[in-house]
Amino acid sequence: MQTEIIIAGFGGQGALFAGQVLAYAAMDSGHQVTWIPSYGPEMRGGTANCTVIIADEEIGSPLVLNPKAAIVLNLPSLDKYEPLVVPGGVLVVNTSLVNRTAQRTDIENVFIPVNEIAEELGNRRLLNMVALGALLAKLPVLSLDEVEKGLVDHLPERHKRLLEVNKLALHRGAEYALQAVT
C-alpha cells in the first residue's frame, strides 16, 4: 500500500517545500517516503511540482501517472492533474487563483481560497501550509500532529520565528476543509 500526492503550482508558492514537510513528517513517523521535484530550466514564475509517495514497503517508482491526491495551487495545475487523480482520490483546489469549478464527481474536491486565508493569517506565503492542512483533513495519511512535528524539526533556522503561524495555517486549512461543502 502506498499513497501518492502531487503538489503543483507556480514557482514561489511553496509547492516543493510543502512536499518536503510532508516527506519529513512521513520519515519521522517511520514510513518509507520519496520526494521528487519536477526540475527544469524554468525557476521563478514557472510551474513547479513535486510528487511525494508515502508507503510501508520499499518504494519502486518515485513518479506515478495517477496519484491518490493532488493539491493544485493554480489553473494550469488544475488542468493538468484533475484528470489524473485516481477515482476516490482527493483534489485540493486553490480557488484564490482558479476561476473554474472542478469537473470530476468521482473524487473528493476541496475548494479553498488559500491565498486569502494565508493573508488573513498575516503572511501570504503560508498558502502552502493552508493547502497541506486541507489535504490532510481529507486524506489522513499522516496526522496534523505528525506534520507539525515535521515543521518543528525541519523548518530552516532562519524561518523558526514563523513556526507558530505555520502550525496555525495547517490547522486553519484543515478546519476549512472539514467545514466546506465539497
Binding site: 518536503q20 516527506a23 520519496t34 520526494w35 521528487i36 526540475y39 518504494i59 518515485p62 513518479l63
Partner: peptide
C-alpha cells in the same frame, strides 16, 4: 540519472 540526483529519500 537526474531522478536519483534530484530525489529526496530517507
Amino acid at each position: 540519472d537526474g531522478n536519483i540526483g534530484q530525489m529526496m529519500e530517507p
